[in-house]
Design a protein around this nucleic acid. Structure first.
Lengths: 358, 358
DNA sequence: CGAGTGTCATGAATCGATTCATCCTGGACG
DNA sequence: CGTCCAGGATGAATCGATTCATGACACTCG
């Protein structure tokens, strides 16, 4: 793009030509140190088998040559990589970012790295990623399934790579899972709204094929039934995706409804934030004119125009526990591993969007 | 180690004896199909070199055995992996999530996968990740440096793996970079505030070692100078980290200041959202009592209590362009590659947090 | 009929580290 | 002095796919 770039390129060319800069192998180290490759390998992996003298000498040579062992070669021998994969539904959702953080911390403590991927709620993308993981001979997979049928995972099972379902109970698929009780969460939200006197509540959701979305609705209906209200007290509003923009659209639609509900329960906080914006833009007061409850309790929920009442999920814990289960299954004593379905409880966090400040 | 281990071993032995469930190799395919391994490889990688008949037959066997080629073996031969690494400062910041999305799209179009990692603004973590990438013989690295000295990258250069700086101009380090003009962005923000009549402006920032933070301040000072205001019209408020919580703390401190500034410019939107919350909690009106301008224009900026005026950065474009440069440098004709420093321009988005609605 | 041409398939060498059976050496001990 | 042993070092085999020089075969043309 500029002349300066040219000069830089020339410099780079010289660099590669001159020295054997790129990639000293274990053989180079062995030769340079006057020992066998086996010894070099031992220095790195089982230092106690090598004499103090040799160890120090080889280490010195390694540093001097800038030797870095090749993971691919190790992997090839070991049969599997030192990577964990985490496949989430939406990286734009802070809930999954927190989840990833929890997983990463735990994995790194065990000497593994994490590769985070995004299925964007598409079963096709999910399938593609899963086969990528199989090619990589990944150590294990944490996955929030996008495919309700579970056939992607069924297929994946053939490869013998352990996986743990996250934010979803392992039902037909079998195996380990760590999830949060979405039915209970949905019930909490709606029970709260009912206790505030609301009798007509909208459920804003989308991506109906996601179990989380369906379970939260189920919980909502349970809560209504509990209160002796008919199921049609819950009015469905569909959003395209589970993000802020779709929430805004849904909010607009909500405003146009005849006999507008007095409260809104959203399948996640992104939707809720969108709905909130729509209300704000239309001059509808929250919570006086309409109450809003979200789901996930992402960090931004508390920072919203009106702080958002939300159902908190222990995202980081979810990621960490799932990783632990995965490591157990993938470990030496993997044979002794028993599959577990861990279900955590969510927690309702009441803020200004549902309750009038006094 | 224990009796059970022995038993487990036996089971495993049976397993391998019975069904080739786990991991059919290319050799198995070759044997089963009655061809050589070379032919199988050709079927996969250069189908045009194989006759229609054989091709079809081998494909059928591959499907039947559920053969998946081993990436590690390919990598070993190829010398480098098909993974791009992206090392960002903070995955909790939606700006970087957008950036990652842009990078991923471009990379996948080129048949590469992206591994996103989080240095959390720690030079030590950065160094650790970089050496991980070297071990992985990664195809290339996109990095938002956490280390101001650039010595981590200087060290990394030895490995001969191409890298591109993102959101940062390649200065001393050399090489490609794609960044946004932070000085210009800072100037835009403050120019805007000055034009609204503000004469005392706080700059809320933290992590002073980050160039982005410093550049934005420089721009702010430029704008003040432009307007004939003294540098001390900019009042520094330090936050620990660049997140919402730190912003809330900084906001509290701001409230305690003698001769409180009439406007706040924050180094990023997370801080701004935190400051906004602090004001809201203290009953200080925005923008009437104090104006706020953020930076990044993340999605949540528009959803805030008072929609946030912010300096928008083309995050996804940043990621995509950086990936393109990286692919060019890592490509066949890498020798012909000229290093480039691309600098994009940010854009001021004015919303309610700075300007009184009329 | 022999030479030439083009299409397919082959299989050994290779990438770089790990592992394990083997070998060496110096010292202890009977 | 011979034997045994333990601590160290060795180097060949191995993991699984790619690549390329070589070979087999069919077919055409002079």
């Amino acid at each position: 793009m500029s002349r300066t770039a040219g000069a830089a390129g020339a410099v780079a060319g010289q660099g590669t030509g001159q020295g054997p800069e790129q990639g000293a192998g274990i053989k180079d180290v062995a030769r340079e140190a006057g020992v066998s490759v086996g010894t070099v390998s031992n220095v790195i992996n089982r230092p106690d088998l090598v004499s103090e003298r040799t160890r120090r000498h080889v280490r010195e040579v390694i540093d001097r040559l800038g030797y870095v062992r090749s993971e691919s070669a190790r992997q090839l021998r070991a049969g599997r990589s030192r990577l964990l994969s985490l496949l989430v539904l939406d990286m734009g959702n802070p809930f999954f970012v927190d989840l990833a953080r929890g997983a990463e911390r735990t994995a790194r403590a065990a000497g593994l790295s994490v590769m985070v991927c995004n299925s964007d709620q598409s079963p096709a993308a999910e399938a593609e990623y899963l086969s990528l993981f199989a090619e990589q001979r990944v150590h294990g997979v944490l996955v929030t399934p996008a495919d309700p049928s579970g056939s992607n995972l069924q297929e994946f099972r053939r490869h013998g790579i352990p996986f743990v379902l996250v934010d979803r109970v392992a039902g037909g698929v079998g195996g380990c899972s760590v999830s949060v009780d979405d039915v209970a969460g949905g019930a909490m939200a709606v029970r709260h709204l009912v206790s505030l006197g609301h009798r007509s509540i909208a459920y804003v959701s989308g991506q109906g094929h996601l179990l989380q979305v369906r379970d939260r609705r189920t919980g909502a209906l349970d809560a209504l039934a509990e209160a002796g209200l008919p199921p049609d007290a819950l009015r469905e509003v569909d959003a395209d995706r589970l993000d802020v923009n779709s929430g805004r659209d849904a909010g607009a639609r909500l405003l146009g409804m005849a006999e507008r509900p007095t409260a809104v329960f959203c399948a996640n906080d992104l939707l809720a934030l969108g709905v909130l914006q729509a209300m704000y833009a239309a001059g509808v007061r929250v919570p006086e004119d309409i109450a809003i409850v979200g789901y996930d309790d992402i960090e931004f929920a508390a920072a919203a125009a009106v702080p958002l009442t939300s159902v908190r999920q222990p995202a980081a814990t979810l990621g960490a526990m799932a990783t632990e289960l995965l490591l157990d299954e993938a470990g030496e004593q993997g044979a002794a591993h028993r599959h577990q379905q861990v279900v955590l409880r969510p927690e309702l966090v009441v803020r200004g969007s549902s309750q009038i400040r006094r």
